[in-house]
Structure formats: C-alpha cells, structure tokens
Computed example of a mutant assay.
Amino acid sequence: MKNFVQPGGTLTLPAPYAVASGAGFLVGVLFAVASGDAAAGAPVEGVTEGVFTLPKTGAQAWTIGARVYWDDANKRCDSDSTKGVLIGVATVIAVNPSTTGYVRLNGGAAGA
C-alpha cells in the first residue's frame, strides 16, 4: 500500500515543555513517554504504546484495569477523570500511598 507512513508506536513530536528521558508528556490529547531529553519546542521521540512505570498521585489506590488519566499541571498520573486526558489503564495494583504506578498506554489520543 502506498499510503502507509509508519507503525506509530514511536513518534517524533515537539516537546511541549522540557522533558527528561522516561517522562510523560502531552501534545494536544496525544500522550507519550520521552525516549530522550528535550528542551521545550525541540523534537523528541515519544513512545505511545507499551507499559511504563509513571509518577502518580500518591494518595490513590489503583486496581488492575483502572482508567488512568494524565494530570499535565502536575506531570503525573491520576485516577480522577477531571484531572486530565485518558492515557491508558493500570496493569498492577498500586497501593495508597505510592508515588508510581504501572500504566499500559492506550496508544492513541484520549478517548480513542
């Protein structure tokens, strides 16, 4: 097929703010995890699929399969849908308190 561009698991995106390798970031409603460091506005490779340990709101308990949202203001995951866009689901139980959680990225834009 002539219209295929790329698989899409990793995309080159403009960093919306300074990001470090392994940090989550949001471009519009597209969430990715940086595969390298980048200054704000610089291109960065962002991984959109897979399971990652990501920072989370500490005072939350997650169950396996719970929806996970990105709180862009605090640069962390949250189980409260009012905090941001849907980025995936929890793959491991996260206890309260804990500062990281395992998240399977949904591989697309929020709501996709």
Rank of each mutant, 00 (worst) to 15 (best):
M1R: 14
M1S: 13
K2Y: 11
N3D: 07
F4T: 12
V5T: 08
V5K: 10
Q6N: 10
P7V: 08
T10I: 15
T12F: 03
L13A: 08
P14I: 13
A15R: 05
Y17W: 06
A18E: 14
V19F: 04
V19I: 14
A20P: 00
S21D: 15
G24M: 00
V29R: 13
V29H: 07
L30I: 00
L30R: 13
V33N: 05
V33C: 08
A34S: 06
A34C: 12
S35E: 15
S35A: 13
G36N: 04
A38S: 12
A40P: 03
G46F: 09
V47M: 08
T48H: 11
E49F: 04
G50R: 05
T53Y: 13
T53Q: 13
P55G: 08
T57F: 04
A59V: 13
T63R: 14
R67I: 00
Y69V: 12
D72G: 12
N74F: 07
K75S: 08
K75Y: 00
S79H: 10
S79V: 12
D80Y: 06
D80F: 05
K83N: 14
G84Q: 12
V85I: 11
I87W: 05
G88H: 06
G88N: 01
S98C: 07
Y102E: 09
L105W: 03
L105Q: 05
G107D: 04
G108P: 06
A109D: 12
